[in-house]
Write a protein that binds this DNA or RNA. Structure first.
Lengths: 103, 103
DNA sequence: ATATCAATATCGAAATACGATATTGATATA
DNA sequence: TATATCAATATCGTATTTCGATATTGATAT
């Protein structure tokens, strides 16, 4: 119950993290999901993949299929536009969090 | 377009801020909306009011109608449970933002 | 051939978000 | 007494998002 509430709060944040990680190195769905889980966040593949598609559709990510050990992975990398959005999001996110610690 | 993307990213965050402000003092929809706007965030009343209802339904907020200058306002205050969720959210939010600034 | 396996894609149902419109209820005006 | 006004809240219909479950892909191993 509370867990569901927190997921709701942070789903947007997870989207920012997709951009953040895709800015550091190419990422793919399965692994991103695993790493989220390691940090205590779970997100259904039925939610995650459409998010990737949407971010690519908006031109923030670009994908490239690569075969690794006989498995096809779709690697996403950030675009110039994605980087601009990420930087803006980073600034806003910091402001919002800082405010949570005022008083 | 980018603006819509950023709103999507931050809607969950706005929900945390509702708890945060309701922890400081009783808040009501119209004024919360105005203050968000002052800070550059816009949220439709068709979105905002159901969020208040939902947070109250989950027992994180409690409301009380008060007549001020002949206008009825519904003031929301945080509950004990809401405070617990807020504290957890605050911690998680900080971790997530800090990570955005690593590297 | 076909079974297996990591990975991605998509489905239908439920929930959420949106902008627009309706409702509320107290006061002011006629 | 009616009714106009106004801030504030509520709700409506449509579109979009989220979810868990199921299907598909495609290369390799059996």
């Amino acid at each position: 119950m509370v867990k569901q509430t927190l997921r709701d709060f942070f789903l947007g944040f997870i989207k920012i993290h997709i951009l953040y990680h895709a800015a550091k190195e190419p990422i793919y769905g399965q692994k991103f999901s695993d790493e989220l889980k390691r940090h205590g966040y779970e997100i259904s593949f039925g939610t995650l993949y459409p998010i990737f598609h949407k971010l690519e559709g908006k031109g923030l990510l670009i994908s490239k299929i690569k075969n690794v050990n006989g498995k096809n992975r779709k690697y996403y990398t950030i675009t110039k536009k994605g980087n601009d959005v990420l930087n803006e999001a980073r600034i806003q996110a910091k402001e919002l969090v800082d405010e949570l610690f005022e008083n």
